[in-house]
Design a protein around this nucleic acid. Structure first.
Length: 198
DNA sequence: TCATTAATTTGGC
DNA sequence: GCCAAATTAATGA
């Protein structure tokens, strides 16, 4: 995990649980807490002017949620919604900043985490700018797989629905389905029982 | 459990 | 790429 749970607790951290589709915070809210996922999966999404959902990121065990908002004075640019049953530790923003002042290693870890996310975001944006649907999907696949320990081929089960894949890549659901089938034919991935293995 | 809703898939344009 | 329709899975009363 990013920061030790006990340490977060010492700085006023408390645990909150959320069920699937529960809202953790909404776009436009003023950040008051640092959030770190103990268990579960959370999506960061934005609904565009056409009412289509764009998933910016999917976070899970051990990761922090929009921690960068602790450092600047802005409102949240995305909604944070629980996808699965979630246990999340929340630390008041000022306490969290104090924690980073007091604990150099934690500050370094957070810096490292932010740098990695930013780097990944560059890669993902470049892939998603491609006009080829298979490039966009492959980019997401590679990204998600990089988060898992399991690196052998066809053994990673993509924890996303077709619809979510479409919401991340900005493609249509139908396009995702057809592209994924083509990719299976090209042996880039496998499909078993509707699940995508990569 | 049954009914309703959401997701997936196919086919036509 | 868009829309409609059919099928299947998930959700909730």
């Amino acid at each position: 995990m990013l920061i030790d749970i006990d340490l977060l607790s010492q700085y006023g951290g408390f645990t909150e649980t959320y069920g699937p589709s529960d809202v953790i915070f909404e776009e436009g809210d003023l950040p008051k807490f640092y959030y770190q996922i103990i268990t579960g999966t959370v999506k960061l999404s934005h609904t565009n002017e056409e009412g289509k959902e764009l998933i910016q990121s999917i976070l899970s065990d051990g990761q922090s949620v929009c921690e960068l908002l602790s450092f600047i004075k802005e409102t949240y640019p995305v909604n944070a919604i629980a996808i699965s049953e979630c246990s999340i530790i929340m630390v008041p923003k000022t306490d969290f900043l104090q924690l980073l002042d007091d604990h150099h290693q934690a500050a370094l870890d957070v810096r490292q985490f932010i740098a990695e996310r930013l780097y990944q975001k560059f890669i993902l944006m470049q892939n998603n700018a491609s006009k080829y649907s298979n490039v966009r999907i492959k980019g997401i696949l590679a990204y998600f797989k990089s988060l898992s320990e399991n690196q052998s081929p066809y053994s990673y089960e993509l924890p996303l629905t077709r619809k979510q894949l479409a919401s991340i890549t900005g493609l249509r659901v139908e396009t995702v389905i057809r592209t994924v089938k083509k990719m299976e034919a090209d042996k880039v991935l496998k499909i078993k029982n509707r699940k995508i293995y990569f």
